[in-house]
Simulated scan of single mutants.
Amino acid sequence: MANLTFTLRSGRRVGVTTLGDPVAERVIVFCHPAPGSSVFDPDPDASANRGVHIVSLDRPGYGSSDPWPAGSWPSIVGAADDIAEYIREMKRLESPIGVNRPPTIGIAGWSAGGRVALAFAARHPELVDRVAVVATPAPNEYVPWIPPELQKQSDELGRLSPDEARSRLSAMLQGQSDAMRAADLESGVPLDALGVGPVDAQVLARRGLEDRLGRMLKDAYRQGPGGVAADILSYTARPWGFDPSAVRAKTLIIGGEADPIAGHPHAAWYERVLPDSRMEMFPGVGHLVIAPAWERVLSFLAPHPEPLHDSGN
């Protein structure tokens, strides 16, 4: 689970995981997929050796984070605003103890997390200079990817009250949640919820990756299905709440050429819409492109790596 918790001004708690060099000048935020949680590290060697401080937050209802308040709709922009509040408070608390980091950060998001990263950049441009969007589906109305029967279901949920919508979708996902919580890490956690397919077999064979994904999914369902239900509602039943074309930060769009969920058409849509962007496709890779691409993501978000700091040991 997350290695610390942060209490927002509203009183809601969020779980936070930190990786890399804790005193590095460059801060990078990583937004997890759906389902997911902050504990996932796509490539620990790359994360440790880039000379960056990596921060990841559990979105509401996942891991160690409180769920969305009663009566409120889960939202992409709300998740982005949680990150902004954490980053601002981190900077405020660090300054008196002599840790003065640059005013802007880099932010990356995998799959559903890519939308949160873009919302953060659109709503808080003063905090970010570079964005990486990895295997993130485009809006369904522009690049169809959600089966029509499921989109119809989401549309119906969107006409309910937020509490009723979350309750109904959570009930639909309860079986998936129960199976995940009962799964044994030693025997392997089912990864189909992440869109992992046969094309990802070679990537999945990377040292420790399957175990790290399994631990993330176990943590994602720690509180039951509420986190993933909220995420699904935020991008299928309600408007996204921001315009991607408003993002002014330099943006890297990464996709797996064999990704059945968010392949080339999705990456190409983002490249057309985002003003300062470039697309890079990884051949022979599916939705798990985040693992082989992580070193590239870090090199883009932190183009000038810092030397590793001596721990004093």
Results as ranks from 00 to 15, higher is better:
T17D: 01
T17V: 11
P22M: 01
F30L: 14
P33D: 05
G36V: 02
P44D: 10
P44K: 09
V55N: 00
G61R: 00
P69M: 11
S75A: 13
S75Q: 07
I76H: 05
G78S: 01
A80F: 04
A84D: 01
Y86Q: 11
M90V: 05
V99G: 04
P103S: 03
T104K: 15
S111D: 03
R115A: 12
R123T: 13
L127E: 08
L127C: 07
L127V: 10
A132T: 06
P139Y: 05
N140Q: 15
P147E: 03
Q153E: 14
L157C: 09
R159K: 13
P162Q: 00
P162E: 02
A165S: 01
M172D: 14
M180H: 09
D184S: 10
L185C: 04
S187E: 09
L194V: 13
L194W: 14
P198F: 03
A205W: 12
R206D: 13
L213W: 02
L213R: 06
K218L: 15
A230R: 06
D231H: 04
S234W: 01
F242Y: 10
D243M: 10
E257K: 10
D259E: 00
G263K: 06
G263D: 02
H266S: 09
A268T: 06
A268L: 12
W269D: 02
R272M: 12
D276G: 14
S277N: 10
V285D: 14
H287S: 15
P292V: 15
P292I: 13
W294V: 09
G312C: 12
